[in-house]
């Protein structure tokens, strides 16, 4: 057979972590929903042939709802309820009520939908948002757990999303609990552990942040990036001598690697951290 082998910078450390995750969150939030006009054109064309088609009315209501045209969305959903089983409209109607901040009606709709389709994860996601916005955090966490439990293959993003929702309201303990659940389920992965570290820092607990970063040492191959992150956490914890040593190890490691923009930035961070520590300025360091 042919084709195969045959046998033969100037921001504080806490701010840096927080800003990193904040930036990721903001970048994500800026992604819009384009193409509404195309979608409406297509659905309207189909509705001309089938004006009582419940599924089409729900689809169009969804497009309106996502585009912020809530009155039009409501009109379509109300019509759709008369064109088939009302329960099939309940989820989308619940989302619309949530967007209109009518939490009581939104909850009622979601619960009705879940009576018919008890294993529909997005309904739990919205119930969690409703509970969170209403200030009922315990209930929000319970719904988030239901949401994740129903995922065939929960992904890191599910846990991050849930943890972020909790952290937004300063529920750091619950957010960390959610992340630790993810780490127990998915294994030790940097996406979750790094967010947990940022939360530990937000709670002024650098020692716990260090312990969490330590769990990433092997999977990140003790890389210069990991070493410098550790050095900065050590500095923040007041362990300046250790920080200098670890930052020095990062510098030595970087010297043997081909230069990339990220490695050049790490070299600068390491030099500035060491210089700052030697001058007694342990709590802040210049980062890229």
């Amino acid at each position: 057979m042919v084709g195969t082998r045959r046998p033969a910078g100037g921001v504080s450390l806490i701010s840096r972590w927080a800003l990193f995750w904040l930036a990721l969150g903001l970048a994500a939030a800026c992604l819009a929903h384009p193409g509404q006009h195309d979608q409406l054109t297509q659905i309207n064309r189909q509705l001309r042939d089938a004006p009582t088609d419940q599924a089409l009315l729900i689809q169009r209501g969804r497009v309106y709802s996502e585009g912020g045209q809530y009155e039009e969305a409501m009109a379509d959903y109300v019509r759709a309820r008369d064109m088939g089983p009302p329960v099939l409209v309940a989820f989308d109607l619940g989302v619309l009520y949530y967007r209109l901040a009518d939490y009581a009606r939104a909850t009622d709709c979601m619960n009705r939908y879940l009576e018919r389709f008890p294993n529909y994860p997005p309904a739990y996601d919205y119930l969690a948002r409703i509970a969170r916005d209403a200030g009922d955090y315990d209930r929000a966490i319970a719904y988030l757990e239901d949401y994740i439990r129903l995922q065939d293959r929960p992904s890191p993003g599910h846990y991050l999303s849930a943890a972020r929702m909790l952290a937004e309201t300063d529920r750091f303990t619950e957010a960390l609990f959610m992340l630790d659940q993810g780490l127990a389920t998915l294994g030790v992965i940097p996406q979750l552990q790094r967010y947990a570290i940022s939360l530990e820092l937000a709670r002024q607990r650098p020692d716990l942040a260090i312990a969490r970063l330590e769990t990433l040492r092997q999977i990140l191959r003790d890389s210069p990036q990991w070493q410098l992150d550790m050095a900065e956490l050590l500095a923040l914890a007041g362990r300046g001598e250790e920080a200098v040593a670890v930052a020095g190890a990062a510098q030595a490691g970087l010297a043997g690697l081909r230069p990339t923009p990220s490695r050049l930035a790490l070299q600068q961070r390491a030099a500035e951290l060491i210089e700052g520590l030697n001058q007694g300025a342990a709590m802040t360091t210049t980062i890229d």
Partner: peptide, 24 residues
Amino acid sequence: LTARDPDQLAAMKAWLIDDLSSND
């Protein structure tokens, strides 16, 4: 899939940065 959800995209990006930072 992942690119269509902002939180999941952010998680994939964070993972990629760690993955590439650990790669020589």
